[in-house]
Amino acid sequence: MGNPMKIRAASKDGVTEVKVLVSHEMETGQRKDAAGAIVPAWFITELVAKHGDKVVLTSDFGPSVSKNPYLAFKFKGGAKGEKVTVTWKDNKGDSRTDEAAIN
């Protein structure tokens, strides 16, 4: 399930800027623990952002995206009060969706 994402969406001059901060370990599968065993990879593979029903960004992540991934992007359109929805999915099949209103 993971923890909630922090999503900020701000509309200015017809362009909406979206900033997303996801809470996720993003384990690379290259690190070893104290006992020398490799820590299994655990990272977000896909993240989709939607404005209403319209997809505004599809991202594929590899394990080299930082822990607690941050993502910022801009799309044309979007008015105050409309919803931006972000969904992520990780390599263990876990997923989470959060939404925020544009302001």
Binding site: V15, M26, T28, Q30, K54, V55, V56, L57, T58, S59, D60, F61, G62, P63, S64, V65, S66, P69, Y70, L71, A72, F73, K74, F75, K76, G77
Partner: peptide, 29 residues
């Protein structure tokens, strides 16, 4: 893409029409 990382590709984004070619994120190196 990060040339000297174990796997070069860090992230890829598909931008539908209307989304600006301007993305920021954070990566490990």
């Amino acid at each position: 893409l990060i040339e000297k990382n174990p796997n070069a590709l860090a992230a890829s984004f598909v931008l539908p029409e209307g989304t600006e070619a301007n993305v920021q994120t954070r990566v490990k190196m």
